[in-house]
Amino acid sequence: MTGRAGDVATHLVWAAQGRPDLVRRYGSALAVAAPGLSGRDRIAVSGDADDAVPLVRDLLAELGPGFRPFGDAGLIAALARRIPGLAPTEPFYWMETAAPGRPPRTETAAPGGASGAFGVRWLDAAEERMPEPLFERWFPRSHAQPGRSGVSRWAGVHGGSGLLAVAADAWSAAGCGFVAGVVTAPEARGRGLGTAVCRFVVDALVREHGRAALMVDAGNMPAVAAYERIGMTERLFDAAAVVA
């Protein structure tokens, strides 16, 4: 199962993590149960609500209430209405692209022969812990952080005081690379560094997996606009959790 295969949406491809045998089907509905994926136990779901309701209901009974269904916002709202104890959480955008990122017109060339614009490059093994202060101070709730399971590699931009912006290749799968852990130091914001780092990672993942995706809070419109500028398109998603 790679890319968009027939009616298999990209978020299911990502959730399957290269395991097509994990896909469950009921009528038009498809679901993938993915424990520990990007910091949560998740159930990726798509299809018609009439078929998705019994599919998700059975999966929750089998797997337990800690799993969270996620998918298109309208579908999740229908699941929450029709499955007792299930409630929507906070909406977010699933953003993806199958094309290399578009460079902003204002971006400068990489100095000193570095790998990407603004000097963006992959961090080497000796630098893999360098992003830690950025997350400790500015993004402690990020699921992708140095040393955590599922994070494959980091790209970053260096400045005189250390790393200024980073993004991770994390929980990527055959058919869908995944970008996470995007953070820029406050003193470096407004210069396009975060966008440049994201585009660098997106370009690599599109080349390697055919498609790249990420998730961003629906209220974070500056980030959504930045990802749109590098060619990503968004769909409004939601997740649901079992509540007492």
Rank of each mutant, 00 (worst) to 15 (best):
G194W: 13
D203W: 06
A168E: 10
V183S: 02
A212Q: 09
V197P: 09
D169I: 04
A185F: 03
R207L: 12
V197L: 07
G159T: 04
A173I: 09
G190Q: 14
A167T: 00
E208P: 06
A196P: 12
A174M: 03
A180N: 12
L163S: 05
R211F: 04
H209P: 08
V166R: 04
A168H: 13
E208L: 08
G175I: 10
V183L: 06
W171V: 00
G190M: 14
W171M: 01
V202M: 04
D203M: 13
F178A: 01
P186Y: 12
R191D: 13
F200C: 13
L163N: 07
H209M: 02
G162D: 10
A168Y: 14
T195Q: 15
V179K: 01
A165N: 08
A165I: 12
A173P: 06
R189M: 13
A170C: 07
V183E: 01
L193Q: 04
V201L: 08
V201M: 08
A185P: 02
G177W: 14
T184A: 09
G181K: 02
V183R: 05
L163K: 06
L193H: 05
D169S: 06
E208R: 15
F200D: 14
A174N: 05
V166L: 09
F200M: 13
R211V: 09
G160A: 13
A196E: 11
E208F: 01
A212D: 05
A188W: 01
L193V: 05
R211M: 10
F178N: 11
T195V: 11
E208K: 11
G192Q: 15
R199A: 15
T195N: 04
R211D: 00
S172G: 10
T184Q: 04
A204V: 01
A165K: 10
A180Q: 09
G175W: 14
W171C: 02
E187P: 02
L163V: 02
T195W: 12
E208T: 07
H209K: 04
H209Y: 12
P186S: 11
A185L: 03
W171I: 00
T184N: 05
V206C: 07
